[in-house]
Design a binder for these strands. Structure first.
Ligand SMILES: [Mn+2]
Ligand SMILES: [Mn+2]
Ligand SMILES: [Zn+2]
Ligand SMILES: [Zn+2]
Lengths: 138, 138
DNA sequence: ATTCCTTTTGCAACAAAGTTGCATTCCGTT
DNA sequence: AACGGAATGCAACTTTGTTGCAAAAGGAAT
């Protein structure tokens, strides 16, 4: 486990620090996506708020995690499953936000190709579905 | 013009106030979606920041405008073209965010039906595409 | 036009979220 | 062990969003 974490950081030319290891572990243990606020709560007094901001930013830039837009002004983050590299994300899967339990899922469904007007160039497509997840719909 | 604005408010059982008229006009004149910050800049000293928050919230509840999630933690708002009523939005079109000019477009393309795992119930689907718009891609 | 009641607004105070600069500490290498 | 660059913590600050309450405005009735 510790090896996996270590590897990810080294592979991305990032020095292995306590905060980075801890935050990466949070993502690995989490069953859904995490918001900045989630990490802040989980970490308690371990490290500074600012460090979390900077770490998340670094991870996104390196292609270790990706962002998930939500309708309520709260970006969430999740591990990139696909082979994402610095500056080149390929997280073309759809996301699901459960209105009940609040969990954000990365689903295996690929985002569909969308039809756009003449001249529009697609860089990124986000599909965010909300409703009730499997656990909450019964 | 003033009549149209007036009608929308009355139809939704909202009293016709300066701020509501002005904000509705902003949306009608805008070629794209507007963020809270945009409206604040446009209105100058006309009315209070809090009024803008409350007005946007009211308009969303009444089905006059709808929200558009973005990856950068800034919700945008646009007029509902479709027949949306209080508590029942039907804005099932996709959105496009231009990375160059910042404009957010409501496109006429309908959101696709997405395949979800067993037990997942869909309430809302947001498709947000980003890249370069027609004006910026040349 | 005046009155009356309800809704909306503005203000102030506050809370939460995010940013920046800089000194200190830590990491990786020599 | 020592060094240099990168990461962290802290403080100060800005921006964004929320809440309570008194004043003002809107709409309906007289
Ligand atoms: Mn994902
Ligand atoms: Mn729209
Ligand atoms: Zn759920
Ligand atoms: Zn553009």
């Amino acid at each position: 486990m510790a090896d996996v974490i270590n590897d990810i950081l080294k592979r991305n030319q990032l020095s292995v620090t306590d905060s980075r290891k801890k935050i990466l572990e949070f993502f690995h243990h989490a069953d859904g996506a995490l918001a900045h606020a989630d990490i802040e709560k989980m970490s308690g007094e371990s490290f500074d708020r600012v460090t979390i901001y900077r770490t998340l930013q670094t991870f996104v830039e390196k292609g270790i995690i990706h962002t998930i837009p939500t309708a309520d002004n709260s970006v969430k983050y999740a591990l990139c499953k696909d082979e994402c590299a610095a500056g080149h994300h390929h997280d073309d899967h759809i996301h699901f936000l459960c209105d009940d339990c609040g969990t954000t899922y990365c689903l295996d469904t690929h985002v569909p190709a969308v039809q756009l007007p003449q001249g529009f160039v697609v860089k990124r497509t986000d599909v965010v579905v909300s409703g009730k997840c499997g656990k909450c719909s019964n």
